[in-house]
């Protein structure tokens, strides 16, 4: 027996239908959303793949023009000479390492000393004031540091060392050191703060002074974090571009001299990018080969830092 169809029952049917539709839509969203989010997460992987593939592909093209042996062993980097062009990366590497080494000499003592001061000596209030200021120092754009190196540090150094050229390795090295100091200070301080208080108290109870606690207890316990911070900071110094491009000059040479003009790997890439080396020339491909070398350098150091902080971490 069929029920008489009223307006009411039709409406209930419709409501059920609507409810079903809504539920279906909800279920669909639940299925689609994770997929979309996964795609966004893949972007970061694609970026890495993109970097490696572009660098590798263009570097291979470069090695069609220049032999690998020349690239790694030749003592000269004269890419712009038409007749006797020479592509030996050693001078660029030497320039890069010189600057990074000077930066480390400046940054390591100052950075670790500030870290010890902040974690062992400073009161909570002092720490709360100083740490943000150090973070400001880390957030200043590198071009500003470059300007500072060229217009302030270089003239002062030239007063002290008359033989210093306008463009040299010393000035950008020192300024990069200043730039990476907050990084070492902040990361080392984190490592030192995470050393448990009970260990310090034990040493104090035996009559140790703050200095003895810092040097004999805290630093040995936090050493993996401290070394990792140094490696990371040096890796940053190697990849630093604008400071050396502004104040370092553009004369690649293979020597230990820090008073003369140099060129780092990054500064070379900048120089070529600004010039009008046409697409497809050997010089154009050379920036990828140099960039790839730089990438390998920094990647190695970052992996080393991760390895050190994992492998040698003291767990308490």
């Amino acid at each position: 027996m069929a029920l008489p169809e009223s307006r009411n029952s039709f409406s209930v049917q419709q409501m059920i239908q609507q409810k079903k539709q809504k539920k279906n839509k909800l279920i669909q969203t639940e299925k689609i959303v994770p997929f979309i989010l996964l795609l966004t997460a893949i972007v970061s992987v694609l970026t890495t793949v993109g970097i490696v593939v572009t660098l590798l592909a263009e570097t291979f093209t470069f090695f069609n023009h220049v032999s690998i042996k020349e690239f790694f062993t030749a003592q000269k980097w004269y890419p712009f000479s038409e007749t006797q062009g020479s592509f030996g990366i050693l001078p660029l590497i030497s320039g890069t390492l010189k600057v990074a080494f000077i930066a480390a000499i400046v940054a390591v003592p100052i950075g670790i000393a500030s870290a010890v001061f902040l974690s062992e000596y400073a009161t909570d209030r002092t720490r709360r004031i100083i740490k943000p200021i150090l973070e400001v120092l880390a957030g200043i754009p590198t071009i500003v540091y470059g300007f500072f190196a060229l217009t302030f540090v270089t003239p002062i150094l030239r007063d002290l060392i008359p033989s210093l050229e306008i463009f040299n390795a010393l000035s950008p090295g020192i300024v990069i050191g200043i730039m990476i100091t907050p990084m070492i200070a902040s990361l080392s301080e984190d490592a030192m703060t995470s050393v448990p208080k009970s260990m310090r108290e034990g040493a104090y109870a035996l009559g140790a002074t703050k200095l003895e606690v810092a040097i004999k207890i805290v630093i040995p316990a936090a050493v993996s974090g401290i070394i990792a911070s140094i490696v990371l900071a040096v890796s940053r110094a190697i990849g630093e571009t604008m400071i050396v491009a502004v104040a370092g000059g553009s004369t690649p040479n293979l020597s230990w001299d820090v008073t003369g003009s140099i060129q780092t790997m990054t500064a070379y890439i900048v120089q070529v990018s600004q010039g009008d080396a046409g697409y497809g020339t050997t010089i154009y491909y050379s920036i990828y080969a140099v960039g790839f070398t730089l990438f390998i350098f920094t990647l190695m150091m970052n992996l080393l830092a991760q390895f050190i902080s994992k492998r040698f971490r003291e767990e308490y």
Binding site: S44, V45, T47, T48, G50, I51, T54, L55, E58, L232, S235, R236, I238, G239, E240, T241, T266, I269, V270, S273, I287, Y288, G291, L294, F295, T298, L299, M301, N302, L303, Q306
Partner: peptide
């Protein structure tokens, strides 16, 4: 991968952008 990407020098991203 993300933590390593954070350590890649900015100029290398420039090379990626130039190519892609």
């Amino acid at each position: 991968n993300i933590s390593n990407l954070a350590g890649v020098p900015s100029i290398v991203f420039g090379l990626l952008g130039l190519t892609v």
